[in-house]
């Protein structure tokens, strides 16, 4: 007996992601899924954003890591509500983990939730968390060949941060090529070259986030 099924294998995750999306929408929260390789600077960028935006936008962070609460402690030190998810070996966050994390956040008091995914340039792209946008960080020490090697992550992102530009003269990174390769995969990609550690070049990204948060709040 042969049965044609055509059933989406990731459906279970997508149903929970849809429920998360509705939670964000009802609360008027802009949720961003921040992805990158390990060490590209996700947590450092979040520290910088907490400093710059924390007093103006009511933000929270959900930290995904395989182990330890080191990252959430760094963010919490900036006075931002933070929930740590430890995936215990899992290489990406799934919607159910985020749903549980949302239980411990004061949703009615928030405008922005940034979800820091597990450092990985492969599978986080496949698992929706219910976010409005996905964003990607590529650091110059990783090399400018990454857009071509990991197209799915670039294709599904709304913006790309090119981090550690203060190291450009010490890394063999072709900024022009990285930008044009990333745009050939996703023409609508907004690109922000910056240095999170030096707090340089953050303004355009902060404006971008501010606009997103305002447009969601306007719909409340």
């Amino acid at each position: 007996m042969e049965v044609k099924v055509v059933s989406n294998i990731l459906k279970a995750n997508e149903l929970i992601a849809e429920a998360n999306r509705q939670v964000f929408e009802r609360a008027g929260i802009y949720a961003l899924n921040l992805m990158s390789s390990p060490g590209a600077g996700k947590t450092t960028l979040l520290e910088a954003l907490a400093e710059e935006l924390g007093s103006e936008i009511r933000m929270a962070v959900i930290e995904g890591d395989i182990a330890t609460a080191a990252d959430s402690e760094r963010i919490a030190a900036k006075g931002v509500p933070t929930v740590q998810i430890n995936t215990g070996g899992g290489c990406h966050l799934e919607a159910g983990m985020v749903a549980r994390a949302l239980d411990s956040l004061p949703l009615s008091e928030l405008d922005l939730i940034i979800i820091e995914n597990v450092g990985n340039l492969v599978c986080p792209a496949d698992f929706s968390l219910g976010e409005q946008d996905k964003a990607l960080i590529l650091s110059v020490s990783e090399g400018s060949d990454k857009p071509k090697k990991y197209p799915a992550m670039f294709r599904r992102s709304s913006f790309l941060v090119i981090n550690k530009i203060d190291l450009l003269d010490r890394c063999n990174f072709n900024l022009e090529k990285a930008v044009s390769d990333a745009r050939s995969i996703q023409p609508n990609l907004d690109i922000f070259p910056l240095s999170a550690t030096k707090r340089e070049g953050l303004a355009p990204l902060i404006d971008w986030l501010r606009q997103k948060v305002e447009s969601i709040k306007g719909r409340r």
């Binding site: 007996m1 049965v3 099924v5 055509v6 059933s7 989406n8 496949d126």
Partner: peptide, 11 residues
């Protein structure tokens, strides 16, 4: 896409 397309079996 990532989908289960067909299942074959015996009743």
């Amino acid at each position: 896409e990532l989908c289960l397309f067909q299942v074959e079996g015996e009743s």
